[in-house]
């Protein structure tokens, strides 16, 4: 596998990027944004900021692979059964790190308890005992007076030692759910790497593009991307893509692009009106992109609501 290419993990005909470095590479070097779709572990109850994996649009995948910038990895087949040997080694390392963690936190706790020993000091214990004695005496007096005590004070007195026992069993440690599989010794993608779309298609791992419309979308996407634009999904603006002049993190999009399969495909006047109207209302121009399969060229037309009068 060529080492410098971005690794696209494909399962169920969907391409994910799991490596942070690869996410940085496609964004900075190849003008590819994708969509983050996972839950951010430290902000898990919101949808504004999402985390890995990065899901790519199929057009993005096709362009990256065709330009030899990325490889397709059949992810379900890249996860093997761990051999007993390698798993034993993995497990030993894991136990070791947990034990180290436990001993570290244990040392920290000892340090804290020696410093902040007020709770255990003789005076505090004497005071606590006096408080409990007083309470018990009051309860006895209450019982002697004939009324039923609401709470029996004896179990409360017996409870503290039981609680004190539990931390001795196993102190808490941090469990990490690993995100990327690359750290696992039994993850071996080398057998299931495809460097071309054709190869992946033959293996049934990746079938896009299949129809003329999908091929047209790939062509238009590549054309715009090679002119230096960034692309995002345009479904919320009535088109196929949003076209950004720079990284969408910092810049607004200028165009909503819609893809037309061929120079002779039918375009209804109502579409032009709707696109022009919607694009202008959202401070964008609508871009009609016509793909010519024979010449492998794209023709672009933009529509704006002229608004005379």
């Amino acid at each position: 596998m060529p080492a410098d290419r971005v690794r696209l993990r494909v399962s169920n005909q969907k391409a994910y990027i799991w490596d942070i470095d690869d996410i940085a590479t496609v964004r900075a070097k190849h003008n590819i944004c994708g969509i983050l779709t996972g839950t951010l572990p430290h902000l898990s109850q919101q949808n504004v900021f999402l985390g890995i994996p990065l899901v790519l649009m199929p057009e993005e995948v096709v362009m990256l692979v065709e330009k030899e910038l990325a490889v397709i990895i059949d992810d379900p087949r890249a996860h093997h059964h761990p051999s007993a040997d390698s798993f034993q080694r993995y497990n030993d390392e894991r136990i070791e790190s947990i034990n180290l963690q436990i001993s570290l936190t244990g040392a920290k706790e000892v340090q804290e308890s020696t410093h902040a020993g007020r709770a255990m000091s003789d005076e505090a214990q004497r005071k606590r005992k006096a408080r409990e004695d007083k309470k018990r005496a009051a309860a006895l007096a209450l019982a002697a007076s004939g009324s039923e005590p609401l709470f029996d004070p004896t179990p409360a007195a017996a409870a503290p030692p039981a609680i004190a026992d539990t931390p001795a069993a196993i102190p808490a440690y941090t469990v990490t759910v690993p995100a990327s599989s690359s750290s696992l010794p039994w993850y071996a993608p080398s057998q299931s790497v495809y460097t071309t779309i054709e190869g992946a298609r033959r293996a049934g791992v990746w079938v896009y593009p299949e129809t003329p419309h999908e091929r047209a979308k790939c062509g238009v996407f590549r054309g715009l991307c090679e002119s230096g634009y960034f692309m995002g999904g345009g479904i919320r603006f009535g088109g196929d893509y949003l076209v950004y002049p720079g990284d969408p993190l910092r810049y607004h999009s200028h165009f909503v692009a819609s893809v037309h399969d061929s120079p002779t495909s039918i375009l209804r006047p109502m579409e032009i009106v709707a696109h022009g109207r919607l694009g202008t209302a959202t401070k964008k121009a609508h871009l009609l992109c016509g793909w010519d399969e024979a010449k492998k060229e794209v023709a672009y037309f933009s529509i704006e609501w002229a608004g005379f009068g």
């Binding site: 940085a24 759910v177 990284d247 910092r250």
Partner: peptide, 21 residues
């Protein structure tokens, strides 16, 4: 500013899934 925004994004993405045992 773009570099800063990208670095902040990547930094946030690196967060581990840590939970107490």
């Amino acid at each position: 500013v773009l570099d800063r925004a990208r670095a902040a994004m990547l930094e946030a993405l690196k967060a581990d899934r840590n939970t107490s045992s």
